[in-house]
Design a protein around this nucleic acid. Structure first.
Length: 819
RNA sequence: GCCCGGGUGGCGAAACUGGCAGACGCAUCGGACUUAAAAUCCGAAGGAGUAUUAAAGCUCCGUGCGGGUUCAAAUCCCGCCCCGGGCACCA
């Protein structure tokens, strides 16, 4: 049963009336033409300047394309088409980030192999994307699940492994007894239940995992953000994620003689430490034979990360009964255990300075611990709880020093006495790289009793996934692959003895870490990319995608890229020179599009009703590319009308050409040249909405005339081409051209034609417009002032006032200050 | 709590380096065409007030709020409010 909407009824009853131009014939025609002629093939060794423009490739979900996808894709497509006309050799590829959970879940439920589901979804996505007329070079399509692709994902993993950047460790992961599976952090609810099925038995258990040493690159990942042209918000998010902080490690001793090392960013407040806090997981905690500590510790182990951070605002903790000695003044201070200190950061232990740290302050107040002021804030500020820079007080040798100097002095003192040293810490953790899943790249490692972990020889790659009948988890924390015993049992590549394959697979991020490199040389069987091609095309000049990948994808791929750079496999230290985030498209009700709101717009429907050119143009006309903006079906209607008007400038109802060779009048020529100038500049700046507005002005101007001069219509088609390529190609052909306009040169505007003879000058009195004067362009300021003062209207508003000052802005306005 | 964005007509928005606020589009209203409607074309329009028979007009207000700088502020500065996004006990 078809859904009945207002528009639906009209189109069902009177489709011929809605058809303002035959987009349904034009669009498939040109899409086939472009595909068949490989119009957008990028040539590797062209003498032209190169331009690499990349879209974040999609995960081909079963739901198909939504209107958010074409937004970024249209923006890059317009830019590419424009740049081709400007003489650039453009690389503009598309592919599929196709490993992922939904296909695996579907396989568990139905037994259908994920590769079948994936292929089907890719076909749908490809069809939908091609239906929008994007100028991708389809010969370069990549698919992360293709063994010929993931062969190289595995190869890169081995390079990381050989460089010591991939290691195994037992680390705690969330395990759900009900699902018999490992859960990701975000799959665990705040109350500790399983988010998928609501199971209660969820707990942490240590599991062997593969981990990538991204922390080794923390400093460079941070520093090199300086050199990329990315939105500040994204850079800031990455900086926060990396979380560099400078401070010092200081060695305390417990009364019983154990070393207790802490990290602090405020060594200058060492004299204000009134207690110590250990994370519940800190090894020293075991030393305290104290039942309260044991109870606290096991309770903390059960809490989820969420509970310990977001929800648990109220501080908890217990006194261990032990004391530490402060190395600067030999004071005896109590040691507490509290879960507001995390084992994973710094040393998992802190000195608490409640007077100058918000968290310690809160804790000390709750447990009635001493609070000692050691930093004097600027006058007028309460010293207790003051966390900024000030002057050290009650701090022995530091007293009287401003905070930055106090930090320096105490740090060198600690270094001298071998009690501590300056240290830099990062929030960034190593990257947990393995997943207990079937549908991912197998990690190419063999475990051998004799040789340990042994890489699969490179000439045996790709290591394919085994065929399986049952994709469900085994129930004993083993990944599904463990059940494929024929596959798991193998020879050790090193000693030839019995070996077992690694059964963890890579996370979905792996394939997307380097796909932009494969596009450059997608069919190369001997290397992931040929050196000369890489050198020609890299780096990516423009990368467009959603802000949701601000940290993970963009940080992971930068990491891999830097490793490949260090190994000499790529020639640039950063992969993406310039990054733009397209804004989100909201539903007509101003809410996020979602099935539950029933406000989802399906691009298929829009294309059926109005055509791809309308969808493209509308999405660009909605507002600035980076802004979040709501969909408005009436707005698509307006764009559709615009394209209808364009069509009717060229042909009558029977499709006969109306264009003639009459000479256009000067006004029209001027509007054309203004349009060439503005559309060019705006396209260059990715300000597509205003470029479209200018094209509308041109069309309005021409519609008002009865002449249809080829001299202005032909260049206009060229301007329109990047935006609405189907209608433009069709009109170009109708104008008698036999070649695609893809490589036609972009029209040039003649500055001479834009020069005005007269200019309208605004005359203000005290900032208010009183008159407008048409004057010759070259008029001098003195003459202009004279004319302005002579104006009757100006004189009228000056009555009873004396002129104090006259400001003349050449060519723009005169403002008379009077009182 | 902290860090980024953002706030302009009924709606989406535009505005160079501080220089006529509201381009362009939507919705609305009026007109032409039509037996009628649709489509198309032409035109009006920020708000309030106001003059004349009528119209063009004229006056004031107006870019989240309150101050400031300036001949001149959507734009710069200070203080707040609201919305969106991100991070969140990182010592």
């Amino acid at each position: 049963m078809p859904e009945v909407t207002g528009a639906g009824i009209i189109s069902a009853v009177m489709p011929e009336l809605r058809k303002k131009y035959p987009f349904d014939q034009i669009e498939p025609k040109w899409q086939q033409h472009w595909l068949a002629n490989k119009t957008f093939a990028a040539n590797d060794d062209a003498a032209k300047p190169k331009l690499y423009v990349l879209d974040m490739f999609p995960y081909p979900s079963g739901a198909g394309l939504h209107v958010g996808h074409p937004e970024g894709y249209t923006a890059t497509d317009i830019f590419c088409r424009y740049k081709r006309m400007r003489g650039f050799n453009v690389l503009h590829p598309m592919g599929w980030d196709a490993f992922g959970l939904p296909a695996e879940q579907y396989a568990i439920d139905t037994g259908t192999h994920p590769s079948i589901t994936t292929k089907k979804n890719i076909d749908t996505f490809r069809r939908q994307i091609q239906m929008l007329g994007f100028s991708y070079d389809w010969d370069r399509e990549v698919d992360t699940t293709d063994p010929e692709y993931f062969k190289w994902t595995q190869w890169i993993f081995l390079q990381l492994y050989k460089k010591g950047l991939a290691y195994e460790a037992e680390i705690p992961v969330w395990w759900c007894d009900g699902c018999k599976a490992v859960l990701a952090n975000e799959e665990v609810n705040a109350d500790g239940t399983c988010d998928r099925k609501g199971h209660k038995e969820v707990y942490r258990r240590p599991l062997r995992q593969w981990i990538l040493r991204i922390t080794k690159y923390a400093e460079r990942l941070l520093a090199d953000l300086e050199h990329v042209n990315w939105p500040d918000s994204i850079k800031e998010q990455q900086r926060n994620w990396i979380g560099r902080s400078e401070g010092a490690e200081v060695d305390f001793k417990t009364e019983t003689g154990d070393a207790l090392r802490i990290f602090t960013t405020r060594p200058d407040t060492l004299f204000g430490a009134t207690y110590m806090v250990l994370a519940p997981e800190h090894p020293l905690v075991e030393k305290f034979k104290n039942p309260a500590v044991d109870t606290y510790r096991s309770a903390a182990a059960k809490k989820s990360e969420l509970e310990r951070t977001q929800l648990e605002k109220e501080k908890t903790g217990v006194f261990t009964g032990g004391y530490a000695i402060n190395p600067v003044n030999n004071e005896r201070i109590p040691i507490w255990v509290a879960d507001y200190v995390m084992m994973g950061y710094g040393t998992g232990a802190i000195m608490a300075v409640p007077a100058h740290d918000t968290r310690d302050f809160e804790f000390a107040q709750k447990f009635d611990l001493a609070i000692r002021t050691v930093v004097q804030p600027p006058t007028g500020i309460e010293p207790q709880g003051f966390t900024g820079d000030g002057i050290s007080v009650n701090s022995g040798m530091l007293t009287g020093l401003p905070t930055p100097e106090a930090k320096k002095k105490i740090t060198s003192w600690l270094e001298e006495k071998k009690l501590g040293k300056a240290t830099v810490n990062y929030k960034l953790r190593d990257w947990l790289f393995s997943r207990q899943r079937y549908w991912g790249e197998p990690i190419p490692i063999v475990h051998c009793a004799k040789c340990g972990t042994v890489p699969v020889p490179e000439n045996e790659l790709p290591l394919r996934l085994p065929e399986m009948k049952d994709y469900s988890p085994s129930g004993n924390a083993e990944p599904p692959l463990a059940k494929a015993t024929d596959w798991v049992n193998c020879k050790c590549p090193q000693c030839g003895g019995a070996g077992k394959r690694e059964t963890n697979t890579m996370p979905q991020w792996a394939g997307s870490c380097w796909y932009y490199l494969r596009y450059i040389d997608p069919k190369n069987a001997g290397a992931f990319v040929a050196k000369d091609k890489e050198k020609y095309w890299m780096s990516v000049d423009l990368y467009v995608g959603g802000a949701e990948h601000a940290v993970l994808h963009l940080l992971y791929s930068r990491f891999w890229h830097k490793v490949l750079f260090d190994l000499g496999h790529v020639s640039t230290p950063e992969p993406f020179t310039r990054l733009i985030n397209q804004g989100m498209i909201l539903g007509e009700d101003n809410r996020k599009m979602s099935k539950s709101w029933g406000n989802v717009i399906n691009p298929d429907d829009v294309v059926r009703e109005y055509g791809a050119d309308t969808l493209r143009l509308y999405e660009m006309f909605m507002g600035p590319l980076e802004a979040t903006k709501p969909w408005n079906t009436q707005g698509t209607e307006g764009i559709y009308r615009f394209l209808g008007r364009v069509w009717r400038l060229f042909c009558d109802e029977e499709g006969r050409l109306l264009v003639d060779d009459t000479a256009p009048d000067t006004k029209l020529v001027k509007v054309l040249h203004q349009t060439i100038k503005k559309v060019g500049a705006d396209t260059e700046a990715l300000a597509f909405n205003t470029a479209i507005a200018q094209m509308m002005i041109f069309v309005n101007e021409l519609t008002a005339q009865d002449k249809r001069p080829r001299a202005v219509l032909e260049p206009f088609v060229q301007l329109l081409a990047p935006y609405a390529p189907h209608i433009a190609e069709e009109l170009w052909q109708k104008l008698g051209h036999t070649q695609t306009l893809t490589h036609e040169p972009w029209p040039e505007f003649a500055p001479a034609l834009l020069v005005e003879n007269t200019v309208t000058i605004v005359v203000q009195v005290n900032g208010k417009v009183r008159d407008k004067l048409d004057v010759p362009t070259g008029i001098t300021n003195a003459e202009l002032e004279k004319l302005a003062l002579a104006s009757g209207k100006v004189q009228e508003s000056l009555t009873g006032k004396t002129v104090k000052k006259v400001i003349v802005v050449a060519g723009k306005l005169v403002n008379i200050a009077a009182g």
